[in-house]
Design a protein around this nucleic acid. Structure first.
Lengths: 279, 279
DNA sequence: GGATGTGAAATCCTTCACAGCA
DNA sequence: TGCTGTGAAGGATTTCACATCC
């Protein structure tokens, strides 16, 4: 998962344990992060079912469609209440309503997009995002050629006006689609503008106050994770059970290191990340 | 993470322990998924440091820059071997090399992009992605106006040719940026073309053979997770310590159901997901 | 009979704290 | 002395399996 937890909120090195509350005592809203993400998926699947006039589902059916196992699904749903009927299943409409309520989808969340490049355009052109739900209500860029130009129906404002505009338009979610260099500053301004939820597409680790929620969408990381799996597969294929006596430990048995390539490939510093600077 | 485990694969209730290997044979590949994702982040941070001529970092410094705590960072690095020097820290160049090796970044991974809409364009225009690393080598769409038109230097092929083209160009990673409707079929074709790693931007849960790795980038889900946090915050603000002594249990205390809103809002079926059909 | 809801076990991940080495 | 590497403790998440109810 993306985490985005407390992060290094300043305390660089200081052993300070932060203001850490006595854990979950506070909010009984104890829905695990992981479950929240899945609820959103269930919601989508359910919507599809509702469209096809399906009125009832069992945990088996829904879980299969959502790609999880049924026990997990039931536990996830149990976090939001008991809306099923034993021996029957769940009413699609009811579940949709309850998940929407839990996710806070019954109110609007104005979105601001910063960085109107390829991705920013794509975001702005979502058709204004869900006509109900997540309306894009502000666009920002620093390119003077773009200022004032409407994209997806909304004129681009200058990045210097973020604070003011966000406050005016009551933006609650900020999407950062700028190049890496500008991302932290844009983030700071969004926060100054009262935006407490950020969706970060820029390949940087944002430093934010702990009351700001950051989710990141990181293409380079995704690609590299996939690359890892390709590599793993290859190794399994190359040496299904070789082991060469290196044993299980493997903790130090990292001699797998390809001869002569150890520190060399880093000559041209990380070509991957260099490129993925802006979507 | 789509999991992709047995899922509905019959295992419904059958006590069959599956083919589950004794875990021992798993060897050194024991790097936790979560750690792999972070390694990619460390790599990026390290690259930035290398660019600035930094040659050595301590776990404290690196972890702060990566937004994790130092113990986690050290544990993550320990999965790939022991490349630090006690009392000193890590050599940036060495770590970069080792992480790249672990993630399989020492070989190329040809990428195919299916669906040349807003997002597909953005992906194709990455400049051909990392000149070394993840070259985009194929583009697909079904819009006949697009076929043959070069985007980001690569001509668009018809989606019917996926299999053939992927095999020819040895595509290892497929990015699906199509509308929801076509995604599963595109996915199936990619798999038929030998693509075992898929990055899915379409808002659907893909069904794939278990040897195919799927990562998904799901805007609607991300937005909804943020929405959840906004809602949680609001509730906390509205009733900072109400709780009514519900304590931790709260398992059943989910009667939080807002009066009169239960099944009503589901009238217009999930406006959110309807919109986010294509980035 | 059939499916939900949920304690409890199992698994995975994170954090602690300290031994060990440069 | 200072920082890495890592067992062990602690949490969080997932899975099991079954009591419970329609």
């Amino acid at each position: 998962m993306q985490d985005g937890d407390g992060s290094g909120a300043g305390g660089t090195g200081s052993p300070e344990p932060a203001i850490e509350v006595p854990a979950a005592r506070e909010r009984a809203r104890a829905i695990p992060e992981a479950a929240v993400a899945r609820l959103a998926v269930y919601l989508r699947v359910l919507s599809g079912m509702a469209e096809q006039e399906v009125t009832t589902v069992s945990s088996e059916e829904l879980s299969a469609a959502a790609g999880v196992n049924s026990a997990k699904l039931r536990k996830d749903l149990s976090y939001i209440g008991s809306y099923g009927t034993r021996g029957v299943g769940y009413e699609v409409a009811v579940l949709i309503g309850q998940i929407e309520r839990t996710l806070g989808l019954t109110r609007k969340h104005s979105v601001a997009v910063a960085g109107i490049g390829n991705l920013g355009h794509a975001l702005a052109n979502y058709g204004g995002f869900p006509s109900r739900g997540f309306p894009v209500s502000a666009l920002f860029d620093m390119d003077s050629d773009l200022i004032g130009v409407p994209v997806g129906g909304i004129p681009v404002d200058h990045i210097d006006d973020i604070e003011q505009v966000c406050i005016e338009r009551e933006v609650t979610i900020g999407a950062i689609a700028t190049p890496a260099q500008g991302a932290q500053e844009v983030c700071d301004r969004l926060v100054a503008g009262g935006v407490a939820c950020i969706l970060n597409f820029a390949p940087v680790v944002l430093q934010v106050p702990e009351d700001v929620e950051v989710r990141k969408v990181d293409l380079a990381v995704e690609m590299q994770i996939l690359s890892f799996h390709v590599a793993r597969r290859q190794q399994d294929a190359d040496a299904p059970e070789t082991a060469g006596g290196s044993g299980v430990a493997g903790v130090d048995g990292v001699d797998v290191g390809p001869p002569g390539t150890s520190g060399r490939m880093s000559q041209e510093i990380d070509p991957v990340n260099r490129m993925v600077e802006r979507l």
